[in-house]
Computed example of a mutant assay.
Amino acid sequence: MVSDGLGDWKKDITKWALDLGFVAIRFTTAEPIAGLEHFLQTRFEQGMSTPFEHKEIRQRVDPKTVWQDCRGMAVLAYPLPHTVAPDKGEGVLARSAVGEDYHRVINQRLKELNKRMVIHHWPGELRWQVDTGPLVERAFAVRAGLGWIGRNQQLIIPGYGSFVCLALLLLDREIPIDDTISNLCGNCQKCEQACPAQILGKEFFAARNCYSYLTQSKEVLTMAEGKGLGARIFGCDTCQEVCPHNQPWIQEELKDLSPASPKRGVDLLNTLSLTKGEFKNDFFPTAAGWRGKGILQRNAFLAMRHAQDARLNLWLTIREKSKIPSILTPYLERNEER
C-alpha cells in the first residue's frame, strides 16, 4: 500500500512512469513560468512565432488558467523509437514522424499511469497534455530539472539526449519539487553550424524559418525554401543528429536495427502519387498524418524537382490528363527549376 505522504507518492509515480517506458520524470510547481509571458509576446510581435502556437499566451505559461485546481506538475519524457535510415534517393521523415503516432502512444501510457494511481487511492484528481495542449512543455521541463534547452532549441536530458517527446501531468496536490540543472552545451556550436536554415544562435528563434516547420506549413514556399528542404518530407532532425549529447543514442539506434524497426525513408514517387487509401494506411497512423496527404505530396514533388528525378516529368505528363493536386499549382505556375 502507498502511504498518504506526498513524498511517497512522488516515488511511486516515478517508479510507475519508468515501468511504463518513460525515460525520465521530474516534478515542479504549478506557478507560472517567470518571464516567459513577456518573451512569448515579444516573439509574437516580431513575427517569430508559428500558427501552430496557442494564441492565448497566458494559458501557455500558467497551469491554473488551464485547470484552476492545479497545484503541482510532473514532466515526463518518452523515447522516440529507433529507426532505419533512409536509402539514397528516398524522401526523409523525422524520427518523430515514423511508427505509431507518439500522441496516441503517450496518451495510452498516461491512462495506464492514471489507472495505477487510482488503484493505489490517489487522493485527488489529475489532467495531462501531450504536445497539443497550450502549456509550453519545454519550459516546465527546464524548471523541473528534466533537462536544459540546447542551442538547437531542443530539451536535452542529461545522459540520454533529446530524442524524446514530452508530456505534462497536472496534479491537484503539491508534490515535492525537483531542482533545475545547468546548461551543459558549453562552447559547442555544432547544431548552429549544421542547421540547414541557419537560424540557430540568434537572439530570437525564427520558428517560421525552421525547415521542420516549413515541411508542415500550408503556406506557399519560396523557391529558396523549396530547395532548402532537400529530400525532407516531414520534419528535420539535423540539429539533433550532430548534437554530442545524442551520439550514444544514435549509436544504440544503429546497433538496434531489426525488420520491425520503422523506416525514415519513403519512395518519393509513391508519396507524390498517394491515394486516399494509401495515405490512410501508411501515414495517417503516424504523427505525420495530421497535416493531410497534400502537404506530403507537395514536399515529395519539391524533393523530386530539386533532385531532378526523371520520374517527375513522366508523372506530370501522365497527370496532365487527370487532376493534379491543387496544392502543387503555385509551384507549377512559376515553373521553377524546370
Rank of each mutant, 00 (worst) to 15 (best):
216 Q>R: 06
210 C>K: 00
255 K>Y: 08
277 G>F: 10
262 P>K: 07
277 G>I: 07
283 F>K: 04
231 A>E: 13
210 C>T: 02
227 K>T: 14
269 L>A: 09
260 A>P: 03
272 L>V: 05
168 L>P: 03
211 Y>Q: 11
195 C>G: 05
272 L>P: 00
210 C>D: 04
232 R>M: 10
284 F>K: 08
242 V>I: 14
289 G>I: 03
185 C>Y: 07
224 A>R: 09
275 T>D: 01
209 N>C: 15
264 R>L: 15
216 Q>S: 11
245 H>I: 05
170 L>R: 05
271 T>H: 02
273 S>A: 14
199 I>A: 07
226 G>E: 15
271 T>E: 12
205 F>L: 04
223 M>G: 06
283 F>P: 01
230 G>Q: 01
211 Y>S: 15
256 D>F: 06
268 L>E: 01
217 S>K: 02
205 F>Q: 07
184 L>Y: 12
264 R>A: 07
268 L>C: 06
206 A>W: 13
265 G>C: 13
198 Q>W: 08
187 N>G: 11
282 D>T: 10
236 C>I: 04
240 Q>P: 07
186 G>L: 01
278 E>C: 05
281 N>H: 11
173 R>D: 00
203 E>A: 08
271 T>N: 10
228 G>H: 03
185 C>T: 00
283 F>I: 03
172 D>W: 10
177 I>W: 13
280 K>V: 13
252 E>M: 12
194 A>I: 03
188 C>H: 07
242 V>Q: 00
222 T>I: 01
284 F>Y: 09
259 P>Q: 11
223 M>T: 14
258 S>W: 02
169 L>H: 04
215 T>V: 05
224 A>F: 09
186 G>A: 03
184 L>N: 09
190 K>V: 14
214 L>A: 10
212 S>L: 09
184 L>V: 09
174 E>D: 08
246 N>I: 05
248 P>R: 04
274 L>P: 00
250 I>V: 14
280 K>P: 07
186 G>P: 02
264 R>D: 06
226 G>P: 01
231 A>H: 15
188 C>Y: 06
250 I>M: 15
254 L>S: 14
166 L>P: 04
248 P>N: 00
175 I>P: 00
202 K>I: 14
225 E>N: 06
267 D>A: 12
234 F>I: 08
245 H>F: 15
229 L>E: 01
226 G>S: 12
274 L>V: 00
269 L>F: 13
241 E>T: 13
280 K>I: 05
205 F>M: 05
217 S>T: 09
239 C>D: 10
181 I>E: 02
195 C>Y: 07
178 D>A: 06
283 F>S: 02
219 E>K: 06
198 Q>E: 11
254 L>I: 15
241 E>H: 13
228 G>S: 05
256 D>A: 15
280 K>Q: 15
273 S>G: 05
253 E>H: 04
238 T>P: 06
276 K>L: 14
259 P>C: 08
250 I>W: 04
194 A>V: 04
191 C>M: 08
182 S>V: 15
191 C>V: 05
178 D>H: 12
198 Q>T: 06
210 C>V: 13
233 I>Q: 03
237 D>C: 07
219 E>D: 11
259 P>V: 10
226 G>R: 01
287 A>L: 03
208 R>K: 14
286 T>S: 10
